[in-house]
């Protein structure tokens, strides 16, 4: 469904991705994980055409992502970024419906879709006419998710969607999100630096370091059969408090 073929991305002298190839299976959730600066966010940004590869190809479905195709690609891809990237000058309702209005949907169709999404994400209906700054962190994240899902994309990309949330809200939202992913059956790519989150939400985990993919598989594979000493160190660094006892 999504694919990187031999992709290298350089920012000036810095190599963000070094000859990375990755296939993401349709209908499944893939978690990209790794330390800061490992290149995981760059993968997402390549998939929506926010940055272009220095070398190699990026495919969404059977479309090669490039200058001519990026706007078409974006209609089939929902993207939810850290802190939401919400438009502070628009109410929640307008944030969610902007893309649909731009795409020329009828008001009825927009209304129906909005109702579905409010129900799906448990967003409080009376908060639809508030501005982002009047919403709680959890509500903002739900709002960003609704906006990403508005055009009913085949693919959903999430970049650290829980980073700004306090632990309780974060836990709740993770549960809800997993249920939502299961119900929708969309192809999901999630970027996180938290292994527990990755294993809870992802069918498959892809661990990256310094612009390369180090290991991919299920959570148990990382514990039982680490590919390199880095994997062991990474897993150990993420242990839960109760592991220590």
């Amino acid at each position: 469904m999504l694919a990187l073929h031999g992709v290298t991305k350089r920012f000036g002298d810095t190599v963000a991705l070094d000859d990375v190839s990755l296939d993401v299976t349709a209908g499944r959730t893939t978690a990209l994980i790794g330390p800061s600066g490992c290149g995981k966010s760059t993968v997402l940004r390549l998939l929506v055409g926010l940055v272009r590869p220095s070398d190699g190809e990026v495919m969404v479905g059977d479309v090669l992502v490039g200058r001519d195709t990026e706007r078409a690609v974006r209609r089939t891809v929902g993207y939810v970024i850290q802190e939401g990237g919400l438009f502070p000058h628009m109410t929640a309702r307008r944030n969610v419906t902007l893309a649909a209005r731009h795409a020329g949907w009828t008001p009825e169709r927009i209304g129906e879709r909005l109702e579905t999404l409010v129900a799906l994400t448990s967003f409080p209906g009376d908060a639809l006419d508030r501005y982002p700054l009047q919403l709680s962190g959890g509500q903002r994240q739900r709002l960003a998710l609704m906006r990403g899902l508005m055009l009913d994309p085949d693919v959903l990309l999430l970049d650290e969607p829980f980073a700004a949330l306090d632990p309780v809200v974060r836990h709740e939202l993770q549960e809800e999100l997993r249920a939502i992913f299961e119900r929708l059956g969309k192809t999901v790519v999630l970027v996180t630096h938290d292994l527990a989150e990755a294993s809870f939400l992802g069918h498959e985990i892809v661990l990256m370091d310094a612009g390369r993919i180090v290991q991919r598989g299920a959570f148990r594979d990382f514990v039982d059969a680490p590919a390199t000493p880095f994997v062991t160190r990474f897993v150990r660094a993420q242990r839960a408090p109760w592991d220590a006892s």
Binding site: V48, L50, R71, R74, R75, V77, Y79, I81, Q82, E83, G84, G85, L86, F87, P88, L98, A99, H102, A103, R147
Partner: peptide, 18 residues
């Protein structure tokens, strides 16, 4: 304008004029 906001605008498929 904060970068995430402009990136969101791009990703939502808005034209340059929009």
């Amino acid at each position: 304008i904060a970068k995430p906001i402009m990136e969101s605008a791009h990703v939502l498929g808005l034209s340059a004029w929009e």
